[in-house]
Amino acid sequence: MLDQLTYTEKKATRDGFGAGVFELGNQNDQVVALCADLVGSLKIQKFIDTHPERFIQTGISEANMMGIAAGLATAGKIPYATTFANFATGRVYDQLRQSIAYSHKNVKVCASHAGLTLGEDGATHQILEDIGMTRMLPGFTVINPCDYNQTKAATIAIAEHYGPVYLRFGRPSWPNFTPADQKFEIGKALLLNEGTDVSIFATGHMVWQAIEAAKGLAAEGISCEIINIHTIKPLDEEAVLDSVSKTGCVVSCEEHNRYGGLGDAIAQVLVKNNPVPMEYVAVNDTFGESGKPFELLGKYGLGVDDVKAAVKRAIDRK
């Protein structure tokens, strides 16, 4: 099963979003896209060219964009409000809370350039707290797909779900290994590899890091179960507990601060139901900096070797 986890090309998850929103736009005329002056970065030009009447440029006013999206939703539109993850969450948290979450508006907050891997722009743009912020908002669904195909599928699927969604994706080209024809099911964790020694729960770009780590560990005789948690909220608790009952220890992997993200979501489930040893692969409560994606992942403890080391620590603690 591990051997089958391969890819032929790298593509950016944001391109998956652009392709998804274009396809969705052709199917559903209630879908409107908004953007705060980052059309090129969000890859939505094809949607705009095809449906200019369903695109709203708001300029660099993200808080306003979220309010406008909330207003469009009241009229039955399905707004996809797009910008960088930093400006889609931290900058506009009050709008997400008051104008969107509190009245459960059908707004899709679609955020690119999440995490360290946006690279050169550095810490101001590398948000590592967004999963935590959005997870805390009542009624919000939080999704962080792992590759191009999955981001495309998720982009299309969330239109069928009524309610606010935070869809998080990124900038770099990344291994595209999930099926092109997949059906995306919100809240349904995906078992990528069966294993017996440890459960690795990974989200976003870190799913591929987990796969690479598992391949290396297999050569050392360690059997890793890998589960792709594309939906952090609602968390597939059953999938987590089923896996853990078999392996007896856990590693969580996320391109996010260790506080408030996937690791904490899983830890909550474990503490209540089955407290087993757990290790976090996450950013250790700090800001990022400029660099190439892999340089940054290595420096901030999200490299393949970091995942391997975390697995060994978790197993040792059993």
Binding site: V32, E53, M66, A70, T74, A75, K77, D94, Q95, S99
Partner: peptide, 23 residues
């Protein structure tokens, strides 16, 4: 029509609503 209370939210929501009505 809307949950309000935190200030500075109503006008953007109304603008979005007005925009949708135009469309």
């Amino acid at each position: 029509e809307q949950n309000t209370g935190a200030l500075g939210h109503g006008l953007a929501i109304c603008a979005g609503n007005a925009l949708a009505a135009k469309k």
